[in-house]
Amino acid sequence: MRMQAALQLVYPPQCLSCDAFVTTDFGLCSRCWRETPFITGLVCDCCGTPLPGDEAAGPVQCDDCLTIARPWSRGRAAMLYKDNARRMVMALKHGDRLDLAKPAAGWLKRAADPLLAPDTLVAPVPLHWMRLLKRRYNQSALLAGALARLAGLPHCPDLLIRRRNTRSQEGRDREGRFANIDGAIRMNDRRLWQIEGRPVLLVDDVMTSGATLAACAEACLAAGAARVDVVVMCRVAKDS
């Protein structure tokens, strides 16, 4: 404790997003906190999009989830994909900011708490091995691992396999996103024993159309998962 206090005097903790000093490690300064669109209040039970109004008596869904059949049961998101949240996702994904996974796990757990059961298996959306070789890490696996540790749940980083190197989903419309991911995700045969009859929580950094998460959920259900829920660091909403 004394050593830690001494280190903080010499190297005071800095904001995750800027150079401002903060009181605790892995924290945001007041300005960056205000610029981070955390999701609170009434949300879509299927994807986590914030909805207008007060807390409802039962589950409610957004227009997208009423229109599109989701193969997963429930979903949550920690933040909207804009402003400082978008900057942090990009830093984690492309800027080697692996330190962001720890605080992000806390935000993910707060959002995902209603979905967590004691035997839930936590798994990330997979990267193709060629993209993993280039990037050196799967940001979704970092988030999933940190969330599983924080929640005291089992984590299976290679539960799913991306069997072909799909092109980027950016710039594609909804139909194009679903077509791009079609047939690209499969279950890792060596992990079948871990999934049968138990709930699975899929973790990803960003949800836009939900095409990738849908492909992953379908693979899990086909392999015998009791149900599949999803949680993402950021949700792209129509007003973002």
Rank of each mutant, 00 (worst) to 15 (best):
G197C: 10
A112H: 06
D113M: 11
A105N: 07
H128C: 08
Q61N: 05
A225Q: 05
W129T: 05
G197V: 05
T166L: 09
G176N: 09
Q8H: 14
I195C: 00
A215T: 02
L142A: 07
E35Q: 15
L213P: 10
P154T: 09
L80G: 03
A211H: 13
S17C: 13
Q61E: 11
R227C: 14
L133C: 01
A219R: 07
N165P: 00
L147F: 09
L100A: 06
N180H: 08
G224R: 10
V236G: 05
A69V: 13
G41A: 13
N84V: 09
R191A: 15
D182I: 01
P118T: 08
D113L: 15
K82S: 12
L108T: 02
W33G: 03
I161A: 05
G224D: 05
N180E: 11
S73A: 14
G171W: 08
G171S: 08
D25C: 01
Q139F: 03
I39W: 07
Q8F: 07
P37W: 04
T40E: 15
C44A: 06
Q169N: 06
K238C: 07
F21M: 04
S140E: 10
A57R: 10
R190F: 03
A77C: 04
R131F: 00
T36L: 15
D204R: 01
P126L: 11
P126F: 10
S140I: 02
F178T: 04
T36C: 09
L201F: 01
E196K: 15
R174T: 11
A117Y: 11
Y11P: 00
L28Y: 06
R70F: 03
